[in-house]
């Protein structure tokens, strides 16, 4: 029975991997959405600091401010790691993940979706 479970699960796994790959080929790579009209709004350090909770989480990264409240549940690390940066300038944390490793290419692609303005400290 264990042998059958091994063979079945292995076959299903590779079929699923194949499915994900084919799915990615058929769908175009998501382009960063056009910046919303408010994208050039200036956001000060004081206003940024007012959004320092998981319920309203803004971060300043490389001169832009992002509202990532909706993304928090999907972030790969445990919430405590990212939530401490809510309401703060987080460029260094984004660049190093606090462990000397940069975020992935897909994270860079995803970020513009959440842009809400320019950071004006």
């Amino acid at each position: 029975m264990m042998q059958r479970l091994f063979l079945t699960s292995t076959a299903v796994f590779w079929l699923a991997v194949l499915g994900f790959w084919i799915g990615s080929l058929s769908a175009p790579i998501a382009q960063p959405p056009a910046a919303p009209s408010v994208a050039d709004r200036s956001i000060s350090t004081a206003e940024l600091a007012q959004h320092a909770t998981p319920q309203s989480c803004w971060m300043a990264i490389n001169g832009a401010v992002y509202d990532i409240t909706g993304y928090l549940p999907d972030h790969p690390s445990r919430p405590q790691i990212i939530e401490v940066w809510c309401g703060k300038e987080a460029s260094d944390a984004y660049a190093t993940k606090t462990r000397g490793r940069p975020h992935s290419h897909e994270a860079d692609q995803l970020l513009p979706k959440y842009r809400i303005g320019r950071f004006a400290p």
């Binding site: 790959w21 990615s24 790579i29």
Partner: peptide, 18 residues
């Protein structure tokens, strides 16, 4: 997949993940 099929593949693929 909620983001996009290509994002799902990038999550799974070793080639993009380091």
């Amino acid at each position: 997949l909620a983001t996009s099929p290509s994002f799902a593949w990038q999550t799974l693929s070793a080639f993009d993940g380091g």
